[in-house]
Amino acid sequence: MSSEIKPVSFAARFAGAFGQFFKYLGDGQYAARCQQLSHGELLAKEVDAKVITETVEVIREIEVPAPVLDTVNTDGALHLLQLLQQEARFIDFLQESIDDYSDSDVGAAARQIHKGCAKVLSGHFTLEVVNHSPENSRIEVAADYDNSQIKLEGRVTGEGPYQGTLVHPGWQVTDIRLPKVSRTDRLHIIAPAQVEV
Results as ranks from 00 to 15, higher is better:
Gln85Ile: 01
Val129Arg: 14
Thr184Met: 00
Gln29Gly: 04
Gly28His: 13
Gly123Val: 06
Ile91Met: 11
Val72Pro: 00
Glu54Thr: 06
Ala15Lys: 14
His39Gly: 05
Gln36Met: 12
Val47Lys: 02
Phe18Asp: 13
Lys119Phe: 12
Ile176Gln: 03
Val181Gln: 07
Leu43Tyr: 11
Pro192Arg: 03
Gly123Ala: 04
Tyr162His: 09
Glu128Arg: 15
Leu84Trp: 01
Val68Glu: 05
Ala193Pro: 00
Ile176Val: 15
Leu127Glu: 07
Thr71Glu: 14
Trp171Met: 10
Gln149Asp: 04
Asp99Leu: 10
Lys45Ala: 11
Gly158Trp: 02
Glu135Ile: 13
Val129Ile: 03
His188Asn: 06
Ser102Lys: 02
Glu57Phe: 00
His188Leu: 07
Leu166Phe: 04
Leu43Gly: 15
Pro67His: 06
Glu87Arg: 14
Ser182Leu: 06
His79Trp: 07
Asp103Asn: 09
Arg111Leu: 07
His79Gly: 11
Gln29Cys: 00
Tyr30Met: 06
Pro179Ile: 01
Gln36Ser: 09
Gln149Met: 13
Thr71Pro: 06
Lys119Leu: 13
Glu4Lys: 11
Tyr24Trp: 11
Gln149Glu: 09
Ser182Pro: 01
His168Leu: 05
Lys119His: 13
Phe22His: 13
Ser104Met: 08
Arg89Ala: 06
Ala11Arg: 08
Arg13Met: 05
Glu153Pro: 00
Arg183Met: 03
Ile62Trp: 02
Ala17Lys: 05
Ser182Thr: 09
Asp146Cys: 10
Gly164Trp: 08
His39Asn: 09
Tyr24Ala: 14
His168Glu: 06
Ile98Lys: 14
Ser133Arg: 05
Asp48Asn: 08
Phe22Tyr: 12
Ile52Tyr: 08
Val120Met: 05
Ser122Gln: 11
Val156Gln: 07
His168Ser: 10
Gly19Val: 05
His114Asn: 14
Phe90Gly: 05
Gln172Ala: 10
Phe21His: 12
Ala17Leu: 02
Ile150Asn: 00
Ala110Gln: 04
Ile52Lys: 14
Ser137Glu: 11
Thr53Asn: 15
Val47Glu: 04
Thr74Tyr: 02
Gln82Lys: 07
Ala15Leu: 13
Ser2Pro: 15
Ser148Thr: 15
Asp75Asn: 14
Arg138Val: 14
Thr174Gln: 08
Ser3Lys: 12
Val56Leu: 10
Asp100Met: 09
Pro65Asp: 01
